[in-house]
């Protein structure tokens, strides 16, 4: 006995602790399984009543009216339109910021500006929604008189502001990771910072930049409060940015706020909409994860 028994006790304790930690890690798997189960069970019930062909091809979404149509396309177009506007706004700006910070700005500036920019992503989205509705829309209306009070343009633009730091921060990390030897080689041949940035560094950091953009798209598609507040609640199949639309997320909010009976077909629509959203973001996240994995290997 003696030291050996003591050692055995400790070994058992170590095993128990390891198992406990492992169980905690497995909670994350349970969450994923839970999400997939919940969404698919309710969605399967939904599709037992509504044909999947109608769901994918009908151009109207009116589950809350007496003349019911269950075509996801209007919600999808609303989602894609607002996200497209956001990305169109955020990518050039975010990318310019990342190049400026990584290649032009002094080192000390980088340390102060990055947390400040990340503050943009820390602002609660309900606040951005208010901004879009009460500041941006009236401002834009002074140029575009036909702009309605709810529209995808201002919701998209404000969403763009929110996702700027996603793009700038991750792209900057990618640019920063490009080995200095590459930079020096290009400068040695007399190129300017601008030429160097676009001809050498951006291509070298392209996978990281692509990842940042994909993540930003995924973020925009899943964003809820900005579009629920500022883009409206009228599902329509349009690509006109000046009229009210409804996104998948805004629809889920709309139903949740109302008094919909649990187990009813209306209740299940939010899960059918939810699984559509989940599939989109899941695909985007998986693609970005793959690229990131490859990218990491390249530099290690």
């Amino acid at each position: 006995m003696g030291p050996n028994a003591f050692g055995n006790m400790r070994k058992i304790k170590e095993r128990v602790i390891e198992k406990g930690l492992q169980a905690s890690a497995l909670v994350t798997i349970a969450v994923t399984v839970g999400i997939i189960l919940v969404l698919s069970i309710e969605a399967i019930r939904f599709f037992s009543e509504v044909s999947i062909v109608d769901f994918l091809t009908d151009t109207q979404w009116t589950p809350l009216y007496t003349d019911k149509h269950f075509g996801i396309l209007p919600l999808l177009s609303g989602t894609l339109l607002t996200s497209f506007i956001a990305i169109l706004f955020a990518v050039p700006i975010g990318l310019s910021i990342s190049i400026y910070i990584s290649e032009y700005a002094p080192r000390s500036f980088r340390k102060t500006i990055k947390p400040l920019l990340e503050l943009l992503a820390a602002v609660p989205t309900v606040v951005y929604g208010f901004f879009a509705l009460t500041v941006v829309t009236p401002f834009l209306q002074s140029f575009i008189p036909s702009l309605s009070g709810f529209n995808s343009l201002s919701a998209g633009l404000v969403m763009g502001i929110m996702i700027i730091p996603f793009i700038s921060s991750l792209s900057e990390d990618a640019l920063h990771a490009v080995p200095n030897s590459l930079r020096e080689a290009a400068y040695g041949m007399g190129s300017t910072k601008l030429q160097n940035s676009f001809r050498v560094l951006v291509p070298a950091a392209s996978s990281g930049i692509v990842v940042s953009i994909i993540l930003a798209i995924s973020r925009a598609i899943g964003e809820t409060m900005i579009v629920a507040i500022a883009a409206g609640q009228q599902p329509r199949l349009t690509f006109d940015p000046t009229v009210p639309v409804e996104t998948i997320t805004a629809y889920i909010v709309q139903v949740s706020l109302g008094d919909v009976q649990h187990g009813s077909l209306e209740y299940r629509t939010i899960f059918a909409a939810g699984i559509t959203l989940f599939i989109f973001t899941f695909l985007l996240n998986t693609i970005s994860y793959r690229i990131r994995k490859k990218f990491r290997e390249k530099y290690e």
Binding site: A25, L26, T28, T32, G222, T224, V253, F282, N285
Partner: peptide
Amino acid sequence: YAKESKMASLLEVNISNLAGVPSIIYGLL
């Protein structure tokens, strides 16, 4: 603990995916 195991890489992909799931989906869950 999990460093190089197969489970570790599964957990890692999974967590990275969860981080990208829209918050409203957590609401449905």
